[in-house]
């Protein structure tokens, strides 16, 4: 028991230190520009729990972040540096919306699974492209996922502006989805998506799959040492492609659950860079599924908290963007001497 606690403390030491350092820098910054730094920080961290409405928004924020982070974890564990979370998210969101809008005549019992499947498949397809290019031709996946992000964003902008646009509203906004396929609210918290339940369950399932099954061990082996994995007979190429299908699928699911549970329609700028923030959460959690749930909740807390902080103390909410940048910059750094040679 004591060893377990010590191990846990060891594992979370670095991420907690990174978060603490960033929050400390932020506090200095806030103290420099406002007379009420404590009030500002209280709102940044805890205003999410002041009312049921705030709590609902907090859960809504955490859902896509958790799912994207889980997807990133699968790909990183398989050794694929997938920065395509944003594109996979948008692909899922637009696919679910297109299905929901165009087939709105179908009964909910058919339409709902169809929309979810479309969203997941669209995301998975987007994960499959870089995976196959990497495995077959060793094309760098950072480049392909980065470029695919922008391609998908342009494509959804086309669909949202020209094809499924709601002509009565301003901007690139799709028509509403039929109410019958909206995700029910989280029990007891009106306005909160029950997608958070899916996210929590999937983070546990992901942990089991990655760390308690042979399949997961093979996937991780392909990521840590590809040649060794191949030598001992792991079908590494297949594991890598599956991992990317899952990563894309998780991103797609995040988008799907967003439109079904939160937005109820597709908006071109619905994501405040969830893809990159989800990646941040995954890396902060040392690519661990349960840890990623914790970091996603933390991030949801400060993204929303920033808005409350701005209202109560007029510290700009972009403080959080600034701090995120610092955190990402510092996140993978190691103090002390360089450990690796070349």
């Amino acid at each position: 028991m004591r060893r377990a606690v010590v191990d846990l403390l060891k594992a979370i030491r670095a991420p907690v230190a990174a978060i603490a350092l960033t929050l400390a820098i932020g506090f200095v910054l806030v103290a420099a520009i406002t007379d009420e730094p404590v009030r500002a920080y209280r709102d940044l961290l805890f205003a999410n729990f002041d009312s049921l409405g705030n709590f609902a928004l907090f859960l809504n924020r955490a859902t896509p972040l958790t799912l994207i982070a889980l997807g990133v974890i699968f790909s990183f564990r398989a050794g694929v540096f997938n920065v395509g979370g944003e594109g996979q998210l948008y692909a899922g969101a637009i696919a679910a919306t297109v299905v929901g809008v165009f087939l709105s005549g179908l009964p909910a019992i058919v339409l709902f699974p169809l929309a979810v499947a479309a969203g997941i498949l669209a995301g998975a397809f987007l994960g499959w492209i870089p995976a196959v290019l990497k495995v077959r031709l060793a094309v760098d996946e950072v480049v392909t996922t980065l470029m695919l992000n922008i391609i998908v964003l342009l494509f959804t902008s086309y669909l949202a502006n020209q094809v499924i646009r709601d002509p009565t509203s301003y901007g690139a906004v799709s028509q509403m989805l039929p109410q019958k396929i909206w995700l029910p609210a989280f029990p007891g918290v009106p306005g909160a998506t029950s997608g958070i339940i899916v996210a929590v369950l999937l983070s546990i399932v992901s942990w089991v799959a990655l760390f308690r099954t042979e399949w997961g061990a093979q996937l991780r082996a392909s990521g840590t040492n590809l040649r060794f994995a191949r030598t001992i007979g792991v079908p590494a190429d297949r594991r890598i492609i599956t991992a990317m299908l899952l990563a894309g699928g998780f991103g797609g699911l995040a988008g799907t659950l967003y439109v079904l549970g939160i937005g109820h329609r597709f908006e071109q700028n619905f994501s405040p860079d969830y893809g990159l923030v989800g990646l941040t959460c995954a890396l902060l959690a040392r690519i661990h599924p349960i840890g990623a749930l914790a970091t996603a909740l933390f991030y949801a807390m400060i993204i929303n908290g920033a808005a409350y902080m701005q209202i109560s103390t007029d510290v700009p909410r972009s403080l959080v963007d600034l701090l995120t940048g610092l955190l990402v910059l510092l996140m993978t750094a190691r103090l002390g001497l360089r450990q690796r040679q070349g």
Binding site: L279, V328, Q339
Partner: peptide, 11 residues
């Protein structure tokens, strides 16, 4: 400080 180039670049 041997941070990762991609991650730090995105940072």
């Amino acid at each position: 400080f041997s941070a990762d180039f991609i991650v730090a670049g995105l940072g």
